[in-house]
Simulated scan of single mutants.
Amino acid sequence: MRVDRVVPNLTVSDIGQAVTEHSAVLGLRVLMDHGWIVTLGDDDGHQLSVMTQDASAPVNPDVSIFVDDVHDALARAQAAGMDIVHPLTEEPWGVTRFFYRASDGRVINVGTHTA
């Protein structure tokens, strides 16, 4: 399994304001906008997501880590005894993902693009 991309996720109350602020300060542009999550980025691959409430999971993740083999990542998380807080799910927006809770309480979204 290979990690392809790591994106921090900030939970915000006003997604429009967060996009405006981070774009103005950091010079990032909108790469993806699903209404409840917006990913900002630049031409060098730096990314930051801001979100209100996850569309299908019971909690918001602190970080999203995209891998080349999400099934292997899930098997590793289970073997390590991680608390799976969102099961492996093929989401309608073209990502297959699961969440686990690390020992410090942070929630990690592990996924791969399927569309």
Rank of each mutant, 00 (worst) to 15 (best):
D54M: 02
F99E: 01
D83L: 11
I108R: 08
A75R: 09
G35S: 08
D14T: 10
G41D: 06
H71A: 04
R106T: 15
V67F: 13
G45C: 11
G35D: 09
T11M: 05
A79W: 09
D4R: 13
F99K: 01
A79G: 07
D4Y: 05
D68W: 07
V63T: 02
G94S: 10
V3E: 04
P92Y: 13
H71F: 04
L40Q: 01
T89R: 03
H34W: 15
V95Q: 11
P61C: 12
T20Y: 02
G94W: 06
V50G: 05
D72K: 12
F99H: 12
H86C: 01
A75I: 01
W93G: 04
G27H: 13
D83H: 14
T114N: 11
P58R: 09
V63D: 00
M82L: 10
G16M: 02
M1R: 00
P92H: 13
T114H: 11
S56M: 14
D83M: 08
H86M: 03
N9S: 01
Q47Y: 04
H46Y: 14
G27T: 13
R106Q: 14
S49L: 01
E91K: 07
G94Q: 08
L48K: 03
A115C: 08
F66N: 08
A102Q: 10
S13K: 14
N109A: 05
H22T: 09
S49P: 00
E21H: 14
I37Q: 13
D14S: 11
D69G: 14
M32D: 10
L74A: 01
E91W: 03
M1E: 02
R5E: 15
V3S: 04
D14E: 09
F99S: 00
G94I: 05
I65D: 04
R29I: 09
G111Y: 06
D54H: 15
A77S: 05
G27E: 13
M32R: 15
V110S: 11
G16D: 10
I37V: 15
V67Q: 11
S64I: 05
L74P: 02
G35A: 08
D68M: 07
V59A: 07
A77H: 02
G94M: 06
V7N: 01
D69C: 15
P8T: 05
A79F: 06
A18D: 09
T89K: 01
V107H: 12
T96D: 02
T89A: 02
P92V: 14
S13A: 13
V6A: 07
I37D: 04
L26Q: 11
V59Q: 10
L28H: 07
N60A: 13
V59Y: 07
P61Y: 07
P87T: 05
D72A: 15
I15T: 06
H113M: 10
S23L: 07
L74H: 01
A55R: 08
L31F: 09
V70T: 08
V67Y: 13
T20K: 13
R106M: 14
M32F: 14
V6R: 00
V30G: 07
V63G: 01
V6D: 00
E90Q: 12
T11L: 04
A79N: 10
D68R: 07
L74E: 03
F98H: 00
V25G: 14
D72Q: 15
T52L: 09
S56V: 12
E90W: 03
G27Q: 14
D104R: 06
L74R: 02
M1T: 04
I65N: 04
G111H: 07
R2M: 09
I37K: 12
D33A: 04
I108N: 12
R29C: 09
P61L: 04
A77I: 03
D72C: 07
